[in-house]
């Protein structure tokens, strides 16, 4: 912890009581963070040690099969669903975000649609899954298969993507749009070339984190995706048995309950799947950070063609005026 950046020379002396209170306050805050870090470390350590205890690389080469040999089919299923959600929820979520931020007139319709999206994010995932089951699996006779699972999962994360898009777009200064128009660009071009491009870090972060959420979901899939211990047959709709989708969270959720005297591999697979999920989620989070870092070259300044030197000068200038700020 660096000494407070705020110089205290010249300030009136501080009494011991105030010093103690000051120390206690920051101590409490630090303890708060410490306690928050505990479950993170504990969960990771728990999953890693449990998975490592009986780790076998064959989980990457074999499907679950009848005797719990591997996880390859569930990995495949989870990746497929991730791609599907990225497509479906991505299009709907980004479109919704664009509309909310760029197209819609402030008014009743916009606040209703925005509100609906937020309320949607508050619906418990099992309820979403059950409605998906009733409407898609049963009533439309789609059977347990990829498409109902994708649709259910997509609407679970659409609100997050929409919100991230809306926020990212609204943070692009109005001046950029006006600048683009002043140059005679069509508005769609302004949106595509300048506004959206400047918002890429925010949008992709939202999208990636939404994917992280979708990868970790169990409840919406239990009654829509079904499960098969073999490989997926490539069909988007059921009712063929092999059209059911295996996925990683199912393994974690159910395999630990299998009698271990009969299938001794089941319990380890439960933790292997948990570990893979954690790695996947962590990977997605790091990817989001990487995207932010890489796309900073598409930050508003760059997108509008300001030279790097000018940018550096501007930054230096800004830093100079706000030197005291610890979080510039």
């Amino acid at each position: 912890m660096p000494a407070a950046p705020y110089a205290r020379s010249g300030a009136p002396p501080v009494s011991t009581g105030r010093r103690v209170r000051n120390g206690a306050w920051w101590g409490l805050c630090a303890a708060g963070f410490g306690l928050v870090a505990v479950p993170v470390v504990w969960v990771i350590a728990y999953v890693v040690t449990k998975a490592a205890a009986s780790w076998s690389w064959s989980i990457f080469t074999k499907p679950v099969g009848a005797t719990y040999q591997g996880l390859l089919n569930t990995i495949e299923g989870t990746f497929l669903m991730m791609v599907g959600v990225a497509l479906i929820a991505g299009v709907i979520g980004i479109g919704t975000g664009i509309w909310l931020s760029e197209v819609a007139k402030p008014g009743a319709l916009r606040s209703i649609l925005r509100g609906a999206s937020e309320v949607l994010s508050g619906i418990p995932s099992i309820v979403l899954g059950y409605v998906g089951y009733l409407a898609l699996v049963v009533n439309l006779h789609w059977g347990y298969s990829l498409l109902p699972a994708l649709i259910t999962l997509s609407f679970l994360v659409v609100p997050y993507i929409a919100k991230a898009t809306e926020l990212a777009l609204s943070q692009v200064p109005l001046a950029y749009r006006e600048g683009g128009e002043a140059l005679g660009m069509r508005r769609t071009h302004v949106l595509g070339r300048i506004v959206l491009r400047s918002a890429i870090p925010g949008i992709s972060t939202g999208l990636i984190l939404a994917l992280a959420i979708s990868v970790g979901e169990t409840a919406p899939l239990l009654y829509t995706a079904g499960f098969t211990s073999g490989y997926w047959d490539g069909a988007f709709l059921g009712p063929a048995a092999t059209s059911q989708m295996p996925y990683l969270t199912y393994a974690t959720w159910t395999f630990y309950q299998v009698p271990t005297t009969q299938f001794k591999n089941a319990l380890p697979l439960s933790f292997d799947a948990a570990l893979l999920l954690m790695v996947l989620v962590l990977g997605l989070i790091l990817l989001a950070r990487l995207v932010v870092r890489l796309t900073q070259k598409y930050s508003p300044e760059r997108a509008t063609g300001i030279s790097r030197a000018a940018l550096r000068a501007a930054k230096a200038n800004r830093l100079g005026s706000a030197r005291a700020a610890p979080q510039a």
């Binding site: 479950p39 993170v40 984190l209």
Partner: peptide, 14 residues
């Protein structure tokens, strides 16, 4: 962010 991203089935099992 990691805490936010831990799948609920994993945190539940833990």
């Amino acid at each position: 962010e990691v805490l936010a991203g831990v799948p609920s089935v994993v945190i539940g099992l833990w």
